[in-house]
Design a protein around this nucleic acid. Structure first.
Lengths: 145, 145
DNA sequence: TTAGTTGCAAACAATTTGCACGTTG
DNA sequence: CAACGTGCAAATTGTTTGCAACTAA
């Protein structure tokens, strides 16, 4: 599920087209590690297809997000960061000092999600846990010296 | 803790001043229910002090956030929403259809926060859980008819 | 007195949109 | 060839900043 062919056929099924630009962006979302923002994806995409425009990147990201293939996260910054959707929800920790983002899997995330869903009787489309603070190395005391 | 007098003396202690504008914003943050954004606070503040500027609202919010008295949340929209800091972290659910925000207290939130903190050995300053989807009334099926 | 605070307008950053042209199915 | 996608530039939105005037301590 959520392999590139699966995404392509899902897009086709909803009347969208598989264009060379979309393929480039789709590939990059797989290849770039971490949580690239629109600008990063744009710059990388231009290396492959110099004629791609920033708005195409934004439009493609919006499409993939609407279809549920990628997630957009606000990692304490004013712009969005993107990553391919995964089965297990996980925590994004962002260090306020060095800026690194650490992903944390923890079974409580899914348990919490399930409980919230049941409590609200809602249809959950997104579930994001964000933690901000100072990482082991950057925290005032207790880190390595 | 985090009563208005407490906030004022904490501000004074760090060399800040208690101005009439700041008092207005501080009061509004207590009185306005829900999670107002900067624009809402600005419009309400103008009813009390018509000479207040939007930048003062932003600057005051930034200050209160830095000092830990308020939290800024990204509730699925491109702008921030603010609320007074509370002791218990809680979940913000935002309905993608009707826009209402529901707060959900659940003991798993604090347990998860504690576990993440221990796992990363980090100094956590923020811990936000955001859920987006369709509420009981707006979900395709299963809601009230 | 004097350092912190404010309003205003301008600057900025991130994202969206209108439109003529290009491309896919 | 018809509908969808794209580049470009301009428009929007949300927030920050420079600076002269203002004000709390």
């Amino acid at each position: 599920m959520n392999s590139i062919p699966a995404i392509k056929s899902a897009l086709k099924a909803s009347g969208r087209r598989i264009t060379s630009k979309r393929e480039v962006i789709l590939d990059l979302l797989r290849k770039i590690p971490g949580h690239p923002d629109a600008e990063t994806l744009f710059l990388e995409a231009k290396k492959i297809d110099p004629r791609i425009g920033l708005s195409t990147v934004y439009r493609t990201l919006a499409l993939l997000k609407k279809e549920g293939f990628i997630e957009e996260h606000r990692l304490g910054q004013s712009h969005g960061h993107f990553e391919a959707s995964r089965r297990a929800a996980h925590v994004h920790f962002s260090c306020l000092a060095c800026g690194q983002v650490i992903e944390c899997e923890n079974p409580l995330v899914n348990r919490l999600k399930t409980e919230i869903k049941r409590t609200l009787n809602a249809d959950l489309k997104e579930f994001h846990v964000y933690a901000g603070g100072f990482c082991r190395s950057c925290r005032p005391t207790g880190g390595r010296p």
